[in-house]
């Protein structure tokens, strides 16, 4: 049962004191964001399920060490992003634009399988394009443009300065725009752009 008034930190303390329901409330409160972050990062329901479980299990096992310096949501998002990176590495399915041979088409991982048929066409195209964006940029896009988190929170989750978040966000959007195949003013070969965090290129 949801306890909207209880703070995450209080639920954690109650769980550590033996209240399993408090942990259930914590999971119920955050599972949707965690699952959707994983779904957009990995692009497959099966992988998203695994990453979500890995993230929550990892969080569960580290709860005792959670000191509350960061908000629990920030910490949980970080654990989730890391679980996704681990999973993408393990499956060697990360479609990295900059590692692709220039004359080979982009890899086409299986698209997600949304439950609602009416959203399939558009969201599958966007999801497929998203998987062509390098993972670091993709994570930034999901946090800022899908989950609508402030730059500051994305920076805390990703453990990078805000300037890096802004740079990754811009480069990621450009890469996504290209992957979507939208008309451009002119085509340039440096699709992924220069290294992040620079003022000039």
């Amino acid at each position: 049962m949801m306890e909207p008034q209880a703070r995450d930190e209080d639920l954690i303390r109650r769980y550590l004191d033996g209240d399993v329901q408090a942990f259930g409330t914590l999971v119920e409160r955050h599972e949707r964001r965690v699952y959707n972050l994983a779904l957009r990062m990995t692009g497959r329901e099966e992988d998203a399920r695994d990453a979500t479980q890995d993230a929550f299990l990892s969080a569960l096992r580290k709860l005792k060490g959670f000191r509350g310096e960061a908000a629990f949501t920030t910490w949980l998002h970080r654990v989730t992003v890391n679980a996704c990176y681990d999973l993408l590495r393990k499956r060697q399915r990360a479609p990295l634009l900059h590692e692709r041979p220039p004359d080979e088409g982009p890899p086409r991982p299986e698209p997600a399988e949304p439950d609602h048929a009416d959203t399939v066409d558009l969201s599958v195209d966007v999801q497929r394009a998203l998987l062509e964006v390098p993972p670091d940029f993709r994570a930034t896009l999901i946090l800022c443009d899908v989950q609508d988190l402030p730059y500051e929170e994305a920076a805390a989750i990703l453990g990078v300065p805000i300037g890096t978040v802004k740079s990754r966000l811009h480069r990621g959007r450009v890469a996504l725009g290209r992957a979507l195949g939208v008309p451009t003013l002119r085509e340039r070969p440096d699709a992924a752009g220069p290294s992040e965090g620079t003022m000039s290129r």
Binding site: N36, L39, Q127, L130, V146
Partner: peptide, 9 residues
């Protein structure tokens, strides 16, 4: 395009 991605249950 990103904002159009639905939140899945």
């Amino acid at each position: 395009a990103l904002a159009s991605l639905p939140e899945e249950p």
